[in-house]
Design a protein around this nucleic acid. Structure first.
Ligand SMILES: [Zn+2]
Ligand SMILES: [Zn+2]
Ligand SMILES: [Zn+2]
Ligand SMILES: [Zn+2]
Lengths: 164, 164
DNA sequence: GCTATGTATGTTATACTATAACAAGTCAAG
DNA sequence: CTTGACTTGTTATAGTATAACATACATAGC
């Protein structure tokens, strides 16, 4: 059921462990905040974690419907929207896709690094980036509420492996 | 034919002058680089400049077709793609929209500040932001080729004018 | 218990965004 | 005037996202 992950977020790691850890954090977070991490929502998050790369809403929907959940777009979009709002997932606008957050709970304004060859998506720590952005905005009198910082390029593996 | 601009990029200015200036720059740039700034492409850029805010591809298409150009999506998408590739316009992914570049010719990695109330879009200087992003990427061994930096929030006018 | 209320899910239908593929026209070099 | 590169137009279709309504489920009062 699970695609072979073609991304390791730029570094080999014990993926089963990392996914399990994220789920545990998500459940703790839901308990603390009184959120309802229902079966569809939980399964959606698991799907994102298993894929370990950005998935389109319809990719998620395919998997959900194959497991007996609704098979219409709103089912996936609503679950994904919930996860994004709660900070458990992020939306990658450049890819029209979603990815599980790797630092749930920690307040963070992430930057995403997208490899154009292998489609890996890494969530880079971006406190400094966000600070610079806040500065640029406040110079114009603008107050930032949400931000999307996305970069396209080559991940370490693809950079050394291929010349394109 | 021209919408009342609801944005002034956060500052009053002589819009006719600013648009004319941008067109002049675009033509100079095209001459220098041997590009073909054809009627559709030129008109598309003018439309973006007149609107002075981000326009969807279909908004542009409506205007183009009303003026006798083709009325099918590829007409607009191709002209917009050309402008973006030549650095004469930018794509705002958060809005599925396009906006004329306010600094054509100058190498720049812009950040876009999008007001969620009045839809104004400002192109903020973001050299510092981009530098911080490059640093974050290189720490992970990632090489950035293109980036989208977009922020949603409140522009100065909407911040003082309304409490929402 | 039983109902009222809010929330979540399922479903239908449709709107919006984007591109593939091919045909026809334009332009400049040779 | 023919060739070849490029631009525009058109048809058709793919891909992304949401509105609106119906049903089911939970929890909290009564
Ligand atoms: Zn995150
Ligand atoms: Zn890669
Ligand atoms: Zn620009
Ligand atoms: Zn505003």
């Amino acid at each position: 059921m699970q695609d072979a992950p073609n991304s390791r977020a730029f570094a080999r790691h014990d993926h089963a462990h990392c996914a399990g850890d994220m789920m545990a954090r998500a459940e703790a977070l839901s308990r603390d905040k009184g959120l309802r991490l229902t079966p569809v929502r939980r399964r959606t998050l698991e799907i994102l974690l298993e894929a370990h790369r950005a998935l389109g809403a319809y990719d998620v929907l395919d998997r959900l419907s194959a497991e007996g959940y609704g098979n219409q777009p709103p089912v996936a979009y609503r679950a994904l929207e919930f996860l994004v709002e709660q900070g458990l997932a992020h939306r990658i606008r450049r890819l029209n896709a979603f990815t599980a957050c790797m630092h749930p709970g920690e307040a963070h304004a992430p930057a995403f690094l997208i490899c154009r060859l292998c489609d890996a998506v890494a969530e880079a720590p971006a406190a400094a980036v966000r600070a610079a952005l806040d500065k640029a905005a406040s110079d114009l009198g603008f107050v930032i509420e949400r931000s999307n910082i996305e970069a396209l390029g080559l991940c370490p593996a693809c950079r050394t492996g291929a010349a394109a």
